[in-house]
Computed example of a mutant assay.
Amino acid sequence: MNTPQKWLRFLINEDCTFEQLLDNLEQTFNSTFTYKNDSSIAKAKLDDFTIMVHDKIDRIFDIALRPTYILSFMIARDKCLNCHVEEHIQTTLTSHGITYQQSQVKDLAYPIELPFWQAPNNDLVIKSSGDKLTAYCKIWYKPAKYSKFTGIFQFSDVWAMRFERNKQLAYYSHCDGDDFNACYWIIPESSWLEQLKNERQSHFPDWQHYDCGDYWHYIVQSDKFYVEVIAKQIEISKKQLNGIFLAKK
């Protein structure tokens, strides 16, 4: 699984219902949006990007969540070299009469669905070697039923790692919601990564000449902890492994 390269986030202030907005977006992008009846999030997957639409109303409690709808685009990594993808999205919205305001929020965490159901109340097992870090997690195949497979997060070209506790369940106060069984997060505009770059720049002004490639701020959950990693890439898989999770004595 490669890291998506770019997100676009728009605020839509349309005087319509969530269903009406989805109908309009389905015609705009010639795609079908799926969502659960009690969910405030709808999704559509296209060839070049994935779209997520966040309702401004909580559909369960019928209360206002925010003043506008949120429209997020997650652009596929291999499409990001084509600078016309972003322009195409904006032109498509405008040509179909959808008024938007582009929003780029510092430290906004974007959830990305995992290809397995990470057991929510179990700790990760973390191992590191050089600039590589691997985290292992238990998997459910249905609620509270453990799979024989182990989930694996493999980080390469690791710059930094830290643990955080006592945060909100959705991590930062600015975090796109999700209705996934399990996910990890990426922060494209990370204050922590910016701080690390500035510090390194002060000691090694030409470091970017020999350290090529983009670093990302990743977050995975370990029971009550958040494990944050600055690395260039994450690969996610599952395998049958023995001896990873040893019983506590």
Rank of each mutant, 00 (worst) to 15 (best):
T3G: 10
T3Y: 04
P4L: 07
P4K: 05
Q5V: 06
L8A: 13
L8P: 04
I12C: 06
N13S: 12
E14M: 08
D15H: 09
C16L: 04
Q20E: 11
L21K: 00
D23L: 11
N24Q: 14
N24D: 04
L25F: 09
E26T: 02
Q27D: 04
T28H: 06
T28S: 06
F29D: 08
F29R: 01
T32S: 12
T34P: 10
Y35N: 10
S39A: 09
K45R: 11
L46W: 14
D47E: 12
D47W: 12
D48E: 15
T50F: 09
M52V: 12
V53R: 00
H54P: 07
D58F: 01
F61N: 10
T68H: 13
L71H: 02
S72M: 11
I75W: 03
R77P: 04
D78M: 07
C80R: 05
C83P: 12
H84G: 01
E86M: 12
Q90K: 04
Q90F: 00
T91A: 12
L93P: 05
T94V: 08
H96E: 06
G97T: 06
I98R: 04
T99H: 06
K106T: 11
D107S: 00
E113H: 02
L114K: 05
W117C: 07
Q118P: 03
N121K: 14
N121D: 15
N122S: 14
N122L: 12
I126H: 02
L133Q: 05
C137E: 05
K138L: 11
W140H: 05
K142Y: 15
Y146S: 13
S147C: 03
K148R: 08
T150I: 03
I152M: 00
Q154G: 00
M161D: 06
F163L: 12
N166T: 10
L169N: 15
A170F: 03
Y172C: 03
Y172V: 01
S173G: 09
D176K: 15
G177Y: 15
G177I: 11
F180A: 05
N181F: 15
Y184N: 03
I187T: 04
P188G: 08
E189K: 12
E189Q: 13
S191D: 05
E194W: 08
N198V: 00
E199W: 15
P205E: 10
P205V: 09
D206S: 14
Q208Y: 11
D214R: 12
D214E: 14
H217D: 07
V220S: 08
Q221I: 09
S222D: 02
K224F: 15
F225Y: 15
V227A: 09
E228G: 13
V229P: 11
I230T: 13
Q233M: 12
E235D: 11
I236M: 08
L241F: 06
L241W: 06
K248C: 14
